[in-house]
Amino acid sequence: MNIVETKDLYFTYPDGDGRKIILNDVSVSFELGKFYTILGSSGSGKTTFLSLIAALDK
């Protein structure tokens, strides 16, 4: 059973004349009863991803 699932999640923000892509087509399922680790370098979108799935950002 999935407790959280994303399909084709994306997030951008304005950057000068264009847009900066932070998340692009992220699809993942988190199952009940399992532990997960989100890894990535600084600035890779880990906190943005967590903020979006927790509905702290839109």
Rank of each mutant, 00 (worst) to 15 (best):
M1H: 14
K20M: 14
V4I: 14
D25L: 06
L56E: 07
I22S: 07
T37P: 01
K7G: 02
K7D: 00
G45Y: 08
K34G: 07
L50G: 02
L23C: 04
R19Y: 14
V4T: 05
T48R: 02
L52W: 04
L9N: 13
M1L: 13
S44H: 12
G43H: 12
G18Q: 03
L32R: 14
S42M: 09
K7M: 02
I22E: 02
E31A: 15
I38K: 10
I53L: 02
A54G: 11
G18I: 03
G43F: 13
G18E: 02
G45V: 08
T48C: 06
K46W: 10
K34S: 12
S42Y: 11
S29P: 08
T37K: 04
N2T: 09
T6G: 12
D8W: 03
K7F: 04
D25C: 04
D57G: 00
F30M: 10
N24T: 00
F30N: 04
V4Y: 11
E5Y: 09
G16K: 03
T37M: 07
T47I: 11
S51Q: 05
D57R: 03
F11T: 07
S51A: 06
I53N: 00
K46N: 08
L52D: 00
L32W: 09
N24R: 10
L52Y: 02
S51V: 00
S44M: 10
L52H: 02
L56G: 13
L50E: 00
S51D: 05
G45N: 07
D57V: 00
S41K: 11
V26I: 15
S51Y: 08
I53C: 01
D15L: 14
G33K: 06
D57M: 02
D17G: 15
L39Q: 08
L52P: 01
F30Y: 12
Y10N: 10
D8G: 07
F11R: 15
I38T: 06
K34Q: 12
Y13L: 15
S51G: 04
L50W: 03
F49W: 09
I21D: 04
P14W: 06
A54Q: 04
G33I: 02
K20Q: 12
S51C: 06
D15C: 13
L39D: 01
T6E: 05
